[in-house]
Each structure stands twice: as structure tokens, then as C-alpha cells.
Simulated scan of single mutants.
Amino acid sequence: MTKGAAAAILGLACLSANATVFTANLSGAVEAPPNASPGTGTVTVDFDVAAHTLTIDVTFSGLLAGTTAAHIHCCTALPETGTAGVATELPTFTGFPLGVTSGTYSHTFDTSLAATWNPNFITNFGGGTIAGAESAFLAGLGNGQAYLNLHTEFAPGGEIRGFLQPVPEPATFALLALGTPVVLLAARRRGKRRN
């Protein structure tokens, strides 16, 4: 196998790794500052920029007080640390269950609508346009600079949160499974030729 073929296989794997699905585990330990909440949760975000859809699925339980708001913050200065302003609609997601300590939520937003976004996010990160906000949000998600935050009466600044991380598409694993042995074999053959 040539170096070009190996590079092509790895390139295809990397291309399909540009996931539009992101996930996080939510906890008080990830809050800034951390808190001792026994609350936990999970979130899956599917962001399709071409279709202008943002689907958010959240499950949470064990909060110390009733929910007051939920949204996604973006973009922190460094991945997986710090705080950022709210990127999505204010004061909370449409239809999010409020005043509860456990629950589920699923909603699909139209990201071509200004109402989906915090106006400050459109201005400060999107260059004043919704398309810019979509691009900045996708970059923040991909770089680990966006987090879902659940705010409660116990912790108005956020009781549990989690930084969203890309979920590789199944095709990525298949390409890597097929490509890795080929790349290793090529490297082995090249090493034998040098000896």
C-alpha cells in the first residue's frame, strides 16, 4: 500500500469523524464552581447546520431543588473549563420542565430563527448573523467549548452541567477498523525495507 492510499483511508476516517451529534454527562462536580449536588443527567444534541435543526434530548434526576432554566452556554475560552454566556434561547428552552427535580426533555429547534438564539450570542459570536451564530455554535460544540447547564433554586448559576463532546459516526469506527491494519502493515513493510 502506498503512503497516499494510507493517507486517504485516514482522511476518510477523519472526515466522517466530523460528527453533528454531541453528548455529555451532567453533574455538580463539573459546575463552576463545583457543588455537591447528587443530581445527574445526560444530554444528546444533534445539530444539522444544513437542515437548520438542533435536537436536544435531556434526562436528569436527583436535583436538590426544582429546575428554573436550562440552556446551552458557548463558547468558553478553553475546552471543558470555565464559563460562557448562554448561546441558545432565553430564559430557558421552550417546553423545558420547570420546578422539578427529575425529568426528560426532547425538542427540535429551527436554528434559522433568531428566537432559537440568545441575541448576544448572535452579536458577539455570530458577527450579527444567524448563519454566523450557527457556525460559531458548531465550532464551539466541536471544540468542547459548549455545555448544557441546568439551573435550579438550589444553584441559580447551575446545579448540574456537562461539556458536550462529539460522538463519532458508526462509519468512523468501520473505517478505522478497516484502515488501521492496512496502515500498520504498510509501516511494517516500510520498516523491513530499511533493514
Rank of each mutant, 00 (worst) to 15 (best):
T116N: 07
F109H: 15
L26T: 09
S106T: 15
G157K: 02
P168N: 08
A155H: 03
R189Q: 13
L148Q: 01
Y147E: 02
G128Y: 13
I9H: 01
T55N: 13
P119F: 10
F60P: 04
T111C: 07
T42E: 13
L150Y: 00
P79W: 07
T123C: 02
L90R: 12
D46Y: 00
G142Q: 10
G4P: 00
C75Q: 08
L10G: 12
L63F: 01
G127Y: 14
G179D: 02
P156N: 09
T81R: 15
G126M: 05
S27E: 09
Q145W: 08
G62H: 11
L148M: 08
G127D: 04
T67N: 06
A69T: 11
P34T: 11
P33Y: 11
S135C: 07
E89T: 05
I160K: 00
P38I: 00
F93Q: 03
G103E: 04
H73R: 02
S102F: 09
G41M: 01
V30I: 14
P168S: 11
L26M: 14
P33A: 15
N195D: 11
T81M: 10
A114S: 14
V100A: 12
A136P: 01
F60Q: 03
P79H: 08
L98F: 07
L178S: 06
T2W: 08
C75S: 13
V30T: 11
P170A: 06
T83F: 07
P156L: 10
T180V: 15
T104S: 15
R190E: 09
V183C: 11
A186D: 03
L98R: 06
A17I: 00
G41H: 06
A29K: 15
A50F: 08
